[in-house]
Write a protein that binds this DNA or RNA. Structure first.
Lengths: 232, 232
DNA sequence: ACACATTGTGTATGACTGTTCACTGAAAAG
DNA sequence: CTTTTCAGTGAACAGTCATACACAATGTGT
């Protein structure tokens, strides 16, 4: 029963498990599509998803116990997407002149390419089902940690203590997610608006990175000669 | 019909419009309560809201055309809450030593005091109904602008150009909203966790403020002697 | 005192929901 | 070839939904 390759039918026709995986993917895609039309995940009905996937409502149960379980499967897909993004970022040169700007550009393209998945992240990260929210936040936290690790490995901001680096990365991720919402809401074919958005995005990241280094410097100065005021 | 005070019944009993306002408030509160139990707004049913408010489903129509309209009324309430927060912040001394820390503390208390409204903001700012999302973003933008104006009036970061100040404020607001989610998810009676969260919050704001000033300095230096690298 | 306006109720209706069950047909296994 | 497995079907169920309508109760204006 559980044999990798069929015994008597190595034909070109699709195998049963392949068909199953296909309708499963159709169900996931159907949910994403419906959310892309401005629906929240918790408001999606099982029958509705099945209908969009072109399948009888009862077929849903062959793949997921309920809609929440489908949601978790979606989160898993999202996790893969985020890991791919990191891998893509890792392929970039270490420190060319406009690395930040190029990173932003890569990210924007990535969001537009995986539009529906980012719609899903943005919508459900702070809303609706509790288990979904927690699962997404878990993925995002993981992403943040991996980013910090990449910074370390590449010697970026090597003078920052780990806790500061973690914080910087979490702020970067926060900014990225906020930017994703903007990218998704952007009307298509508006290069001017898009350029302005990119510019803002780059600025925000610069502020964070500059602030982090300077804050660290001030901390060092503070421990050297205490009593200095640290705000204003 | 539209007279401020009843002509013949100035008694202690509640007037008709008072009753109406009360059930209206009950409906709004009911929606917030249901969302506080982890539901997304778009998944709330009219009948459900009416039931929670202790009123017949059909009574709903005396106050709102549909649930979306109730959502917009909630957004209006939220707008008032945000304006109250700004007013409260304005009452603080101009520049005591630990102004930032105190602002954070005030904000945390405010979020906890208006918990359900912040749950609503956090959930619906990026999810579900399009018109609701836009309405909330509008309120948040307004809040950001008012904050920038307050900074100007108090002479804070007076050296920053307006565009930078706007950006700093939008980053502050972004951080505040992210912090709100953390505050809301915080299990009660965990002073250690809460203190750590506050500390992180303060750090993040410092990074933004430091980064903004330094970025501005670097911009000035850049225009003075161009050719300086601006990243690393 | 009387007529009107308005808030809230109860019932009804047709559509949609999640879930069950017995089933079909074809791939997989023997 | 025969048998088994199993993804997908279609009918049926009880429940909830939004909405419409006639109606009741009561504050309000004349």
């Amino acid at each position: 029963m559980v044999s990798g390759i069929s015994t008597r039918k190595r034909s070109n026709a699709v195998s049963r498990s392949e068909r199953k995986d296909l309708t499963r993917a159709n169900l996931l895609q159907a949910a994403l599509t419906l959310m892309g039309e401005g629906r929240s995940f918790t408001s999606l009905a099982l029958r509705e998803i099945a209908r969009e996937a072109g399948v009888a409502p009862t077929a849903f149960y062959r793949h997921f116990r309920n809609t929440d379980e489908l949601g978790l499967a979606l989160v898993e897909e999202v996790g893969i997407t985020l890991r791919r993004l990191l891998r893509e970022a890792r392929k970039m040169d270490v420190a060319p002149r406009d690395m930040l700007r190029r990173s932003v550009s890569v990210y924007q393209d990535y969001v537009k390419l995986n539009r529906l998945q980012f719609v899903f992240i943005s919508s459900e990260r702070s809303g609706g089902s509790r288990i979904l929210r927690l699962a997404i936040r878990n993925d995002v936290t993981h992403f943040t940690h991996e980013m910090a690790q990449d910074f370390r490995l590449r010697g970026l901001y090597a003078n920052l203590p780990t806790s500061s680096l973690q914080m910087v990365c979490s702020m970067i991720v926060m900014t990225m997610l906020a930017a994703a919402t903007d990218i998704l809401d952007l009307p298509p074919h508006q290069p001017l608006l898009e350029a302005e958005m990119s510019e803002n995005f780059v600025r925000q990241l610069k502020i964070i990175l500059f602030g982090a280094t300077r804050w660290d410097e001030d901390l060092a100065a503070l421990s050297a000669k205490p009593g200095r005021k640290d705000e204003g």
